[in-house]
Amino acid sequence: MRPEGRLKSIAYFFAPLLALLVLWQATITVFDVNPRVFPGISAVWHAAVTSIADGTLIQHIGASLTRVAVGTVIGIAISVPLGMAMGVLPAVATFLTPLMRFFSVLAGIAWIPIATLWFGYGFGAITFVIFNAVFFVVAYNAMLGVSTIPMRLRYAAASLGAGPWRTLTEVLLPGALPNIVTGIRTGLGFAWRGLIAAEMIATNVGLGYMLFMARDFYRTEVIVMGMIVIGLLWLLLDRLLLAPLERATVERWGMVERT
């Protein structure tokens, strides 16, 4: 894209958001909204500056992102090999499909009560919720990915001299990758929501906790600031990491996404 074109599209993207900000402040000023119902922009800005200055915001963000990172990495590390192994024999994959679907629709938030019972309130329970949101969805997708690779591609590799290990690295893994990436994107979506919910219930640090505590004191400016931070973090994660990854595999290779 030409530089001016790019600049223009960025401007078009941010103009409506700016308009929204103006509308927000105008509504607050004109109707003289009680700050306990909804804060003005300056109050939110002030809340952001203070919480950055005293380090609490960074602390909450750090706690939340650490949980996401740990849960996701463990989840992917276990689910990808397991899911792929389940998909190698088509008959086995067909047999296991209902089980995997059952557990992937249950993944995430529904595990919060039992997770807090198993691990107590805190890091363990929340990380477990994220882990299992990622685990079941990615394992299911990895299985689906491997089992839907056309048999002729495996035949082609074998007739060109590929052994089992080479077939795994050259055919099964890249062939299942689009599904795995899609699974990670979906699973992280569930995990992110599970994180916020779990942090409201089961901890004393993290973005969800920050929001829920602010509610106790009617600090709407902290709540709104937290919501914006949550939105921005997810946008960054999704647009800068997950979506490009999905595009690079699914679209470039011309592989149709299989659900």
Partner: peptide, 20 residues
């Protein structure tokens, strides 16, 4: 853009202010 942003905030983050 507004839709994308509000989608990113996510449902559960709305709970505290909705409770108020």
């Amino acid at each position: 853009p507004i839709l994308l942003f509000f989608q990113a905030i996510g449902d559960i983050a709305w709970l505290p202010i909705l409770l108020i």
